[in-house]
Amino acid sequence: MSKVLLIAEHDGSTLNASTAKVVACARQIDGAEIDVVVLAESAASVAAEAAALESVKRVLTVENAANKTAIAAVLAPQIVALADGYSHIFGPSTTFGKDLMPRVAALLGVNQISDVMSVEGTHVFKRPIYAGNAVVTVEAPADSILVATVRTASYQAVDGGNSAVVESVDVNVELPTHTRFIELQAGSSDRPDLQTAAKVVSGGRALASAENFDLILTLADKLGAAVGASRAAVDAGYVPNEMQVGQTGKIIAPDLYIAIGISGAIQHVTGIKDAGTIVAINKDEEAPIFEVADIGLVADLFKVVPELIDAL
């Protein structure tokens, strides 16, 4: 039987939406029994959210002042101390999981399978490589613990309504003090979260300035959409890094994705391939974005976007 330990991602008070997607992946493993561990300073509210997730059997809480912020070097040895008896340890392929899980894997002396996009067997998974230009089937040895991160855009969050047992556990390991959290500079926004929004409007280099990017923001607000950007737009300083969509930014799967003035480099397309409907607006009819678009419009964005805003 497979026993899966999931590492909950949270901000100290709220469970991140990625965790419910990791559960959705983990429960596809035959006979999986799923525990979620919440490492926090005080875990109650996050644990309650995790306990409500369908298919979760137990929620373990590890409370420690050192867990106030997620420092991989601090969390990893605690997870390793809990690993005994589990066949799999899963985390989300977010910046949180990407930072943490390989550190866990190395301490356990095993390799990691990054960005699981489908479960083919208890130890067989598919994952994207080369910016999504290829998909590889990877088989891990069945006789050692398996550490993986889950590509959250490949999964729909499980429902709530469960009431799993919550248990506090003690972990007695020495924690390093060589890494200190200083601060988080998070863009404050009333807009929907890019990673989980049903609709996303993204702008690219063709916007040509931070001021012009307001067009994208206005259209997004009309649609109730989150705002994204191509790497070029972020590099040019039109918008902050957390808006970047693509291979090295966020991998997202909204119902509707509108790419405006984005050429559609493979590194961008890999971040949106799982979107329900992709709309592309670009004045270059040869732009590669049209190869993946469900609806394409060859036009000047500075003419068309104001028209869309007026019509909505």
Binding site: N111, P128, V135, V138, K273, F290, V292, D294, G296, V298
Partner: peptide, 18 residues
């Protein structure tokens, strides 16, 4: 320790409309 058993091209999206 990990065996890569099969490489495949990614699933193509359906051709869209203009």
């Amino acid at each position: 320790s990990l065996k890569e058993t099969l490489f495949e091209p990614p699933a193509e999206r359906q051709k869209g409309v203009m």
